[in-house]
Design a protein around this nucleic acid. Structure first.
Lengths: 249, 249
DNA sequence: CGAAGTGTTGAAGGGTTTCAAGCATAGTGG
DNA sequence: CCACTATGCTTGAAACCCTTCAACACTTCG
């Protein structure tokens, strides 16, 4: 399937930039992940606390990590795009402490954990790359904490849209400041720590200020500079930095 | 210095639980980190964007990671205790994208990055352990996101106190539901995304409900069960899980 | 003693949530 | 083809949480 090989090359190119992988290492990784699975919207892909024997690589569609609360509400803690690994932290520490669910219809590839472990043993660079990828996840999480704690709902929303567009562009799904963004307003609200109603009003304000247009799951950023300024967005934290890592070593 | 060896053994025992390290591996790590440094309160230890050639291991005192905002406010994204590595993500991906500062007078040990790299090459388990430690950081960050996004200030505060006490107990600094907690209310506010004034009132409410007492930098948890319930706290995410990781491998 | 930093309190204002209702669209079955 | 339902988006109004501004008390320290 062409989509699959394209995705694996997405992941591979990111890892390559992260840790200077050779072609052999990339090929080994892409050969290890073979089985593909389809998930319907809102389907649970990884259960919290589960001890999975396979890693999931997202091929197409969107997923999110979230934590439910006793009162029925929930917080989305990450949004995952094609090329992302859904349950890397579960692999790293042996236990996954959040659930991962599909936002849209999604395709994943399975990578046997045991096989990945032996691959890493053979190619230590691969382990470094995956570790660096997790550092990127942490950097994104830090930005979310800043937003949730200290940014206005308006600014927070702008920042999230910047981040999502930048990441989508990096994986080649978006360009010209347009992209598919098939979120429910309730889902956006759960990501931003807002109520559904207030998110709607904030969105209208962004539209009114002519920064974006968002309808039918399609986002158009009319004023990128304006949106960046509103969100206080700076894309450095999303970019890999292999050379610097190499310089240290 | 006895404090130093105690700390290294703290870190070592955590890593050991994380990835089943042998004594030789632990000894190699502790021999690599030798130089000690002292930092005064509010001193910057790691600068954002810096490309440091050394990792910092916290020996004594408390530190925090934070991100400043253009309007002068800031968000604290992590609190670091003895035995924690201050700039692990900088090592993993080659660039640190947050500043680390001392909260109290603090001692750190320096670990040359190049040396650690070669150590990891020789002892792959060590790399796994550090990677797992970073997964723990991510798990903590996720809990903070949930709190900042969806929990009441009251509940959020309770959760943070539970987390800090649990972590302090794990490194042997706290017991009997008492510990030193030398935070300024302004610092707690910056960690919880609250204003200074509101934090003060929330704290009073916790005191009024007889859950805690906190003065002069000393915390006493009068009703642990009550505090856990108020914060919706569950300590699983703080505990290492080597056996499960091993089971997968 | 004065200065600076920290903790505390009151009151006003604004940002958000909640509740409630109305509207649009798409899918379903009669 | 048309109710009919379900889901998601939108809007209004009241209540509440939280911030801001301001002032004061307490402590430490030079």
């Amino acid at each position: 399937v062409p989509v699959v090989s394209r995705t694996i090359s997405l992941l591979a190119s990111r890892l390559q930039r992260l840790a200077d992988l050779s072609d052999g290492e990339v090929r080994a990784l892409s050969e290890a992940a073979t089985v593909t699975r389809v998930h319907e919207p809102n389907e649970m892909i990884c259960e919290e606390g589960a001890l999975s024997s396979h890693l999931h690589i997202l091929v197409s569609g969107l997923c999110h990590r979230h934590k439910p609360l006793p009162d029925g509400s929930r917080q989305i803690t990450a949004i995952l795009l094609p090329g992302d690994i859904l349950d890397l932290s579960g692999f790293a520490c042996g236990r996954l402490d959040h659930s991962v669910a599909a936002l849209t219809r999604a395709h994943t590839m399975l990578l046997p954990a045991a096989q990945l472990r032996s691959l890493i043993e053979r190619y230590p660079r691969l382990g470094q790359a995956l570790w660096a990828d997790m550092a990127r996840e942490l950097a994104i999480a830090e930005q979310w904490m800043v937003g949730l704690g200290r940014r206005t709902s308006y600014s927070r929303m702008a920042h999230l849209l910047c981040e999502l567009y930048a990441r989508l562009e990096l994986v080649g799904i978006a360009r010209d400041h347009r992209c598919a963004l098939p979120f429910t307003q309730a889902e956006l609200a759960d990501a931003l720590g807002l109520s559904c109603v207030h998110l709607n009003r904030t969105l209208q304000q962004l539209r009114h200020d002519d920064l974006i247009s968002l309808k039918n799951g399609h986002l158009v950023i009319k004023d990128w500079q304006g949106l960046v300024a509103a969100g206080g967005f700076s894309p450095i934290y999303l970019l890999p930095c292999a050379r610097q890592a190499a310089a240290v070593a």
